[in-house]
Nucleic acid binder design. Structure first.
Length: 848
RNA sequence: GCGCCCGUGGCGGAAUGGUAGACGCUGCGGACUUAAAAUCCGUUGACCUUAGGUCGUGGGGGUUCAAGUCCCCCCGGGCGCACCA
């Protein structure tokens, strides 16, 4: 009979059993259909946060459900173990990054394991080990061979105090996030991956990713930024050089009032290098960093070269400027300005008193002062284009330029090549050797992997590898003379770009992964993670997959067939009477129902539920939750209420409600008779009702999980439980129905509350574990009820409900509906014009 | 500025165009208890004095026998992108 449910003991017991039996360890099996479910792997910060709990619970529900549905499910876990925090810990506490990282992995693994996830831990790896990153070095060299990797000079954010490159997101208000020093723009030799070669494929394949959120596909599409237009040349009066520009609005050529070059354009210095004020102008352009925000705030400034440019079709000269808002990385690094139809050009023209010539006129004409017109209209003041619509004019002018050989129609992308060099220690070494005579050479195959030196010092700013006394010294593989190693390491997004393949064959010493294995497991059917990686990681991983494919490593085009992006976890915020943020654990309700501080007893101000953050202290510690309420309650709560794609509000009452349910399920289900009764020929009506509920729930829960509507699945299960709890057995049929319901219930709560489910399953005398138990079979014939209760409307308003036999005719329904007292009252003196009967749904009496 | 998403009880949220508010949280009432906690039972959209009715899915219009759901306009909130030529 029901005894008190010992959560801690029971949960530990079942985790041990799963572990000992290797319940979640899988291998390729061609007889079974595979299903690969993957959650974004964590950075080993040392402690899991609630976001992890949500992420991995969602994945585990899918994994356990798909396993029960008969799939061969791969559900692995690993560690995204390279990255800055380890170096910061080394600087702050003098602890070696490797030691710090490995210790963090140990504690985080224990925390994750206490969630009871159905993970194949035998496949675990950490990306910071040579066993993992050696394959990256091989891939990189193969990329180099194939022209996918290359080296070039580029502009970067440079922190003058730390002597290191900063990513755009590490620049805050033009200053380094750690040092606070104003960031400089610097030209640096960096390694790049030619993601732009894949721009078209990356864009086109987005259409096929129909199990991705529309939002993410759109973000990637915007990021890739394909645009079509005309690339054509202007002559410079009195010089031989030509200026090539790209435009998406070739139709506005006759509205041109200037040509502008990027300050980084090779022609800029040629045309203006000897002019007064040029050096100062360039310096001004370089100040202020390269972050989007910094660029946006910058005022448009230009430098008049004094030269004029012409185009054969235009027949007049326009001035040539150098302007700070022209990007060298996009298009050709030069433009022609049409102030009337481009806001930036108009701002620039107004500042330098350049002419404004409208050439596209909407109905009724326009006057341009401060706002450019970019809408539709007919061309004017444009000679042979006059009267044409914008699109026709574009085509026409491209045709003319191609005819006179000054230009051609082309496509440009916003996407830029991926700069992968980082001046860091804690990353994968880039396997390159620099020789004064032979240049940059790949590290020979037999010298791979290039491993990080263990004796490393962080006492100087800048790249520790650069400062290492001996590590970078080596000999040229070609001429054997002394040479230097590349001291930069890969961007840590490198590791996460291919880890999905590595799980398929995590111990392979020769290859990233064996093709036979990746061909079996890949692609990932269901990927789950935060939306913050919509363009970064998710785009890199897609690109990497294609690059690996083209280098013969894999036969896969897209890594993730299905993607689910979960919402954030939020919590109320609390402030004490001085406005200081306090932790949720420091606020308690007093007898009057007001929140007060646990120590001072003074009132606490409650703020809105917002994303958990350390600065606002509105965080909860998953370990504490797992210890107090158990994994099942934590999992249940995190799946309840909120749809997974939306933000989830963490509340104490919510987790307590979940905990209550766990205990109640245990006491109620434990108390049921465990014996398996024989199936009788006849069932009482209450038994039929229960069986219908059972099979309705089997259908609904399956559909909900497939649709990621975990909150609905939980609601169905609770409803089902309420039905079981209210049931009183009176005959053999009832016993059978209850037995059927109980076993189905236990099987279906398994994805959500696996420990409790196993415990109840065992208590019912089963010798096999629930992890081997298939999803309960659905009997569709039991879904149909003998009677249906439907609403009766009069002019669309519900006035009564009637209960009819399942196969009742329309006439019966109509008669019964009209016989209802409430219906008659609503009809009153009015004339019945029409009666609409939708069988099994509604009766609507139209009067008036 | 452009694009996308979302507005339903005190709260989180359900609802193939067909009985709005499933399921839960909170609150309230009761049982049990010396008492409390736990547990159990009942109740919980607003308004009208009850039978019963009226109003209710951000606001306004429309389509329909029937609209939270479809269409148009507006308001509010959130997210993404943004000198990309």
């Amino acid at each position: 009979m029901s005894e008190r449910y010992n959560i801690r003991e029971t949960e530990t017991l079942w985790r041990k059993r799963w572990d000992e039996s290797g319940a979640f360890n899988v291998k390729e099996d061609n007889a079974k259909q595979k299903y690969y479910v993957l959650e974004m792997f964590p950075y080993p910060s040392g402690r899991i946060h609630v976001g992890h709990v949500r992420n991995y619970t969602l994945g585990d529900v899918v994994a356990r459900y798909k396993t029960a549905k008969g799939f061969n499910v791969l559900h692995p876990m690993g560690w995204d173990a390279f990255g800055l925090p380890a170096e910061n810990a080394a600087i702050e506490r003098g602890e070696h990054p490797a030691k710090w990282t490995l210790a963090n992995i140990e504690s985080m693994r224990a925390q994750l394991q206490s969630m009871g996830l159905s993970i194949d831990w035998s496949r675990e790896f950490a990306t910071c080990t040579p066993e993992y990153y050696r394959h990256e070095q091989r891939m990189f060299l193969k990329f180099l061979e194939k022209g996918i990797a290359y080296r070039k000079e580029s502009m970067v954010n440079w922190d003058p105090v730390d002597h290191t490159v900063l990513a755009n997101e590490q620049v805050i208000d033009g200053c380094g996030w750690r040092t606070g020093a104003p960031v400089e723009r610097r030209k640096l030799n960096q390694w790049f991956l030619k993601i732009t070669d894949y721009a078209d494929e990356l864009l086109e394949c987005l259409e096929k990713l129909d199990r991705w959120p529309e939002k993410v596909r759109l973000m990637q599409s915007n990021w890739i930024g394909k645009s079509q237009g005309l690339q054509f040349k202007w002559s410079i009066t009195g010089r031989d050089e030509q200026i090539e520009v790209f435009t998406t609005r070739p139709d506005t050529l006759f509205g041109a009032s200037f040509v502008a070059l990027s300050p980084d354009h090779p022609l800029a210095a040629k045309l203006a290098g000897d002019k007064d004020g040029f050096a100062a102008f360039i310096k001004q352009c370089q100040a202020g960093g390269t972050s989007e925000a910094a660029i946006e705030q910058a005022e448009k400034i230009g430098f008049d070269t004094g030269y004029k440019a012409t185009h054969p079709l235009l027949g007049r000269e326009v001035p040539v400027y150098i302007a700070n808002f022209i990007l060298m990385d996009y298009g050709t690094g030069a433009i022609f300005g049409v102030p009337a139809h481009d806001q930036r050009d108009l701002d620039f023209a107004n500042k330098y008193a350049l002419s404004v010539r409208p050439v596209v006129l909407p109905e009724g004409g326009i006057e341009i002062t401060k706002e450019a017109y970019s809408g539709p209209g007919k061309l004017a003041n444009s000679e042979f284009l006059d009267g044409l619509e914008v699109e026709t004019a574009k085509a026409e002018i491209i045709r003319r330029c191609e005819e006179n050989n000054t230009g051609f129609g082309t496509t440009q992308f916003r996407l830029r090549d991926w700069g992968i060099s980082r001046q860091r220690y804690w990353g994968c070494p880039i396997p390159i050797i620099y020789c004064d005579s032979c240049g940059a050479l790949p590290v020979p195959e037999d010298q791979l992997p290039v491993t990080l030196p263990e004796d490393i010092s962080f006492d100087k700013p800048g790249n520790p590898l650069e400062h290492h006394p001996t590590w970078k010294n080596t000999n040229c593989p070609k001429c054997s003379k002394p040479a230097r190693r590349e001291t930069d390491t890969f961007d840590t997004f490198f590791e996460s770009s291919w880890y999905q393949f590595r799980y398929c064959d995590p111990k392979n010493e020769v290859l990233p992964a064996d093709k036979a294995k990746t061909n079996y497991w890949m692609p990932v059917e269901q990927y789950i993670g935060g939306v913050e990686h919509a363009v970064l990681h998710l785009l890199y991983a897609r690109f990497f997959t294609k690059a690996m494919r083209d280098c013969g490593f894999v036969d896969c085009d897209e890594p993730f067939l299905g993607l689910f992006t979960q919402g954030m976890v939020t919590h109320e915020t609390y402030q004490d009477e001085n406005g200081k943020w306090i932790y949720p654990t420091e606020a308690v309700k007093n007898e009057q129902g007001q929140y007060v501080h646990t120590e001072t007893g003074k009132p606490v101000k409650i703020g809105p539920s917002i994303k958990m953050s350390k600065s606002k202290k509105n965080v909860i510690d998953p370990e504490e939750i797992l210890n107090t309420y158990g994994a099942d309650a934590a999992r249940l709560f995190i799946l309840s209420d909120s749809p997974p794609e939306r933000d989830l509000e963490w509340t104490e009452s919510g987790i307590e409600g979940a905990w209550r349910f766990v205990n109640k399920v245990h006491s109620v289900i434990s108390a049921l008779d465990a014996a398996t009764p024989a199936k009788p020929d006849k069932f009482s009506s209450q038994a039929q009702d229960l069986r219908r509920l059972t099979h309705k729930t089997i259908k609904a829960v399956g559909e909900d999980i497939e649709a990621f509507a975990m909150n609905k699945a939980v609601a169905r299960l609770r409803e089902f439980f309420n039905g079981i709890n209210a049931f009183h057995t009176e005959d053999d049929g009832d016993a059978f129905a209850l037995h059927e319901a109980a076993e189905a219930f236990i099987t279906m709560i398994n994805p959500v509350m696996p420990h409790l489910a196993e415990q109840l399953w065992a208590q019912r005398g089963h010798k096999t574990m629930l992890v081997e138990q298939p999803w309960p079979p659905l009997d569709e014939t039991l879904l149909v009820a003998d009677t249906v209760t439907i609403g009766v409307q009069v002019n669309g308003k519900v006035r009564a409900t009637i209960t009819l036999p399942a196969g009742a005719s329309q006439k019966e329904a109509e008669e019964k509906a009209l016989a209802e007292e409430g219906v008659q009252r609503a009809i009153g003196e009015q004339q019945v014009r029409k009666v609409i009967v939708v069988p099994g749904r509604i009766v609507n009496v139209v009067v008036g």
